[in-house]
Computed example of a mutant assay.
Amino acid sequence: MSFSLNEVEATAKRATRGAGYSWGQAEEASKAVRWLCAQGLDGAEVLARLLTLGLASELAAHRPRQVDGLWQGDGELCPLSAGPLLSDSAYLLKAAPVEMRDVVAPELLLPFAANAARVLKCWVSVEIDGTLAVTDGDHLAVHGVLPAAARRVTVSQGVAPETLRSRHSRAQPAPGDWDVLNRFAHRTYAPATEESRLLGAGAGLSDND
């Protein structure tokens, strides 16, 4: 399966909303997934895995309780809550690293670290349980295998890596992951009504031909 980044972004947005996140968070998620796919990472798989956890039903428990000091929640941290906060709090990295605990789908933090790098105009490193990723906002280097969940994530100002990942213009999600996203996306579609059918193309509810 091969899709344009525009297709992936649109599907990710509807899927995130269908999973119970706000439209604002869905917008953030869709751009994050697109950025990951552009870096050659499987953003669709990461989002599908996150949405199946059902964190949106009690999202307050999965966002950082504070930004001063250690970032942790009452439950596992959701990257769609911690990530935008990281972007908005990029200035904190000038003073000290940001440390997070118990993050699910931590790969989704990388696009938000990229936003912070653009704001600060520097390289930003994200260490995820020993795996190091470095970005300047547009490019990415990853040293190691990114885990599905992380006990510890440390975000700090970094240095330019020697090699960078190649950029991609299309995504190739696995059929199962794409199906998961589409199932969530379908929750945002309004069911057909008699009025909508009458307003649609064709003969409506009767056929006099």
Results as ranks from 00 to 15, higher is better:
53 L>H: 12
56 A>K: 01
47 L>G: 15
43 G>C: 11
37 C>P: 06
53 L>C: 08
38 A>H: 00
25 Q>Y: 11
34 R>P: 01
54 G>N: 13
58 E>N: 14
77 L>C: 06
127 E>H: 02
44 A>F: 05
99 E>I: 01
19 A>F: 06
20 G>N: 06
35 W>Q: 02
125 S>G: 04
71 W>N: 07
124 V>R: 04
42 D>M: 07
82 A>S: 12
66 Q>G: 11
61 A>Q: 15
104 V>F: 02
52 T>G: 01
93 L>I: 04
38 A>W: 00
65 R>M: 11
85 L>E: 02
96 A>N: 13
48 A>G: 15
66 Q>E: 14
119 V>M: 08
41 L>N: 07
104 V>M: 02
117 A>P: 13
49 R>N: 13
125 S>E: 06
105 A>V: 03
34 R>L: 01
123 W>L: 08
81 S>Y: 04
72 Q>R: 02
50 L>H: 01
114 A>N: 05
101 R>A: 15
75 G>T: 10
24 G>E: 10
86 L>P: 04
118 R>A: 07
68 D>F: 09
97 P>H: 08
96 A>C: 10
28 E>M: 03
109 L>W: 05
126 V>E: 09
99 E>L: 03
44 A>I: 09
93 L>K: 08
76 E>L: 05
23 W>V: 09
125 S>K: 05
61 A>H: 15
32 A>F: 00
33 V>F: 00
52 T>D: 06
48 A>M: 14
89 S>M: 06
115 N>P: 05
126 V>T: 13
114 A>L: 04
38 A>V: 00
116 A>T: 02
37 C>D: 15
26 A>N: 01
79 P>A: 12
26 A>R: 01
89 S>H: 06
90 A>M: 04
66 Q>F: 12
44 A>N: 11
113 A>H: 10
64 P>R: 10
120 L>P: 11
88 D>M: 06
67 V>N: 08
80 L>S: 03
55 L>Y: 15
61 A>V: 14
28 E>H: 05
76 E>T: 03
120 L>T: 08
56 A>Y: 02
43 G>D: 11
112 F>W: 09
24 G>F: 08
99 E>S: 05
17 R>Y: 13
103 V>Y: 14
59 L>D: 14
115 N>F: 07
88 D>L: 12
74 D>M: 11
111 P>D: 07
